[in-house]
Design a protein around this nucleic acid. Structure first.
Lengths: 225, 225
DNA sequence: CGAATAGTGTCTGTTAGACATTATCGA
DNA sequence: TCGATAATGTCTAACAGACACTATTCG
């Protein structure tokens, strides 16, 4: 049997996206080790076969250890590989995408808006671009953006989240019709947002059925013309 | 710096899908080596860092070497990993999906319909299921199924391909309207299908612009109710 | 009451599917 | 001419977006 050849570098990298100041932002960290020690990069780390059940678990561990984030929405994105992307040698990076409400992040977290990233090492810029494209596309026809909200939110808030993610305005009536059809939200009895000098909004939460899996809509929001 | 730990098994596996007898079928091969020598499985192999530019190239090489298929549509699917999936130990398999017209396969190729698979080793059944789900979803709103056709095809043929992939009938008028809007096909002047005792159909080919990239439609075909 | 935002009713243009009609071949 | 399939015209129902209107809070 052919041997597996020289050992490969195998890592997981996580694109953690959140919403801050009305913009989609990605979590970056200063690298402690070479290569690129001291520069901002995606959180990542070696896969640890003894410790990690699979790469999903490795990504969750990286987020827990490096960002203090526990149990977020986490989805495998794609795998990036080759001789060129890492100066240490031929490598495989399994990239993950995480969505987290901003208030679930520790205060010291470094965030950068996805459309004004600093220069990133490895192929991290490409990985972020892939993640953003995926999240945008998926948000067109699914409940994905709710993972960027907290436990309780109003429909106007949720609409603003969709608009921030999609980068374009969403028709209010259509949006509410869609949310109604998808049947993924339930109003919290008697709970209204307060604060403004205006009519308060009904607070909603995710239905239990919608907690586990994304809710998918046949036709998307804002289909291309 | 922490060492990368014990070497991992890193492979690529390819789900080659084609259309035969009006059904979506997957290419399988008898394994020559342990584990599971002699059983049918997805074509796959170790990533070879010295030889392969990246895992995309590794997948293309596997298809070329093991199935004699050159330059097919090839797309990364997902990465499967963990201690449980391979008896040799903790492994990472980067899975790819290929679409090929049936007549581009060598005569001796072993195909199995995707909805009546034999028992497969490793997590290959799950990998096939993932590939089929992805191809179905993507075919709803893109030109993906054209890769299952040859160079020249008629609209009724293409519609039959869509129906076979999606597993449900497609409205003829809507289908033709959509193909027209997408503007990805061009009629071959003066070329008509022949053979039946009926009106012959116009032959089409992909426009050059549509050759390189998928053509994406805003609203899908057959949106869910 | 006025400003501001939440929430709803309704109209209209667009799109997709059903159905019917015409076209073109071989036998 | 008939059977069969290709190709197209047209009607209708569903849907999305625009706009206007009502509702409810604070000051």
């Amino acid at each position: 049997m052919t041997r597996a050849g020289p050992p490969l570098i195998c890592t997981v990298d996580v694109v953690l996206l959140t919403l801050r100041d009305g913009a989609l932002q990605v979590l970056l960290q200063r690298r402690e080790r070479e290569p690129f020690a001291g520069t901002l990069a995606l959180p990542g780390g070696y896969v640890r076969p003894q410790e990690d059940r699979d790469t999903d678990a490795a990504a969750a561990r990286v987020l827990r250890e490096k960002a203090g984030v526990e149990g977020p929405y986490l989805e495998q994105l794609a795998t990036f590989s080759g001789a060129a992307r890492d100066p240490r040698g031929w490598s495989v990076a399994i990239a993950y995408c995480a969505l987290v409400p901003a208030d679930a992040l520790p205060g010291h977290a470094v965030l950068a808006p996805v459309d004004r990233l600093p220069s990133l090492p490895f192929d991290h810029a490409q990985i972020v671009a892939t993640a953003v494209a995926r999240v945008r596309t998926k948000s067109q026809y699914s409940s994905l953006p709710v993972y960027l909200c907290g436990e309780r939110f109003t429909l106007p808030q949720l609409q603003a989240v969709y608009e921030a993610v999609l980068g374009e305005p969403v028709n209010k009536v259509s949006f509410r019709r869609k949310m109604d059809e998808l049947d993924m939200l339930e109003p919290i009895e008697g709970a209204l947002s307060s604060g403004g000098a205006h009519r308060p909004a009904q607070l909603y939460r995710l239905r239990n059925a919608a907690r586990q899996a994304l809710v998918i809509s046949g036709r998307g929001l804002n289909p291309r013309p």
